[in-house]
Amino acid sequence: MAERTFRDGARAVGPLAVAVVGFGISFGVLARAVGFGWLAPIVMSATTFAGSAQFASVSVLGDGGTVAAAVAAALLLNARYAPIGISVAPYLTGSSWSRFVHAQLVVDESWAIAAEGDGRFSRGVLLGAGVVLYVSWVAGTTVGAIVGQGIGDPATFGLDAAFAALFLGLLVPMARDRRHVAAALLGATIALALTPFAPAGVPIIAASAACLLGLKR
């Protein structure tokens, strides 16, 4: 099979870009509604580029929470990008400046699409998918923040199920042997078991511990 390229990544992420634009709009609307103005939500999407963390910090602040609580919520949710970053590190070549910039394009969706299933990642796909998702997220946020009212809740259109469907579609071909299946099931179990008790973000980062099954031969 030929090596996958930037274009393959951009194309593969297409269907999801629609959902990302929808959630970008709702993020812009929500942030504006809690008093972020129109510029701050756009700057946040352009710099943070991580949907769930942005929603979390804006909600905390909107509910009257402190700056510290809002920042902590977002950074806990993004803690998973530390191991994710390590997993793609061997494939991000180039100067440290270009690695720094390319690392910012890594989000759950671009990372999952770029996974080759055997622990390797396609740099081209990662960047292609990342650029499309980045543009979609910032564009959606801009529309939402400037228009300031919803085109409707993305959930009405079922877009909230798009992410689970994508992740499942990427996971299944990866589950080729017992170790991969066990890691997936253990990860899901840890995440669900912790969700009612732990702050948002902790269940996902704890689930990454399931990869320690790789220590067993």
Binding site: I86, L171, R179, A183, G187, A188, L192, P203, G214
Partner: peptide, 29 residues
């Protein structure tokens, strides 16, 4: 760590990171 292969032990753990996190994301989403 960019541009270099991961150490042997770390690589076999990281190989399972994708299924572990994807399983968790499917469940939570």
């Amino acid at each position: 760590l960019g541009g270099r292969p991961l150490p042997e032990g770390l690589a076999s753990v990281i190989e399972l990171l994708a299924p572990a996190l994807l399983g968790a994301l499917v469940a939570v989403q």
